[in-house]
Amino acid sequence: MTLGYAGIFFYVLASLAVVSSVMVITRKSAVHAAMFLVFTFFCMAGIYITLSAEFIAAVQVLVYAGGIVVLFLFVIMLVPLEGRITRLPVGRGAAAILLAALLAVAVLTFYGRLAGTDVSMSVQADRAMGNIEAVGTELYTRYLLPFEVASVLLLVAMVGAVVLARKQL
């Protein structure tokens, strides 16, 4: 199995993303958590590039790192919680980790069954059309109705957010 530098890129980014996602859920300060969240999203965008999904990588950076995290930071700024102790009850963390381990065992058993098929993927691009062009063609032909419904969903979410955050509900 030749790894190639794209493969090394994938493993480095994957380990960085896992470490920084653990930091997201362990930091006490919500601002630090948001910073590690940005870092995780950038790592994910890099991984999408190695999987030759350049358009999704760009959308990931624009929407997640540019939009969603800024929204998080605004709300952290509006909701002052400094100095407030949010201690976790003992036993709840252990129970959560146990549950996660059980889920991991279940899914890994399934993956083990999959391992016999020996599927591998290539990171190199081998297509005639560019990724953005191809995704755009799919979106505007085969998935036109879901695309329009998604725009309605965004409109509804926007109206809902404005109504919920108003002064008197």
Partner: peptide, 18 residues
Amino acid sequence: MIVVPIQHVLVFSLALFL
């Protein structure tokens, strides 16, 4: 060029999900 087995990607995404 065969680079990254799909299982590694799936295990990574499982870790992130957990």
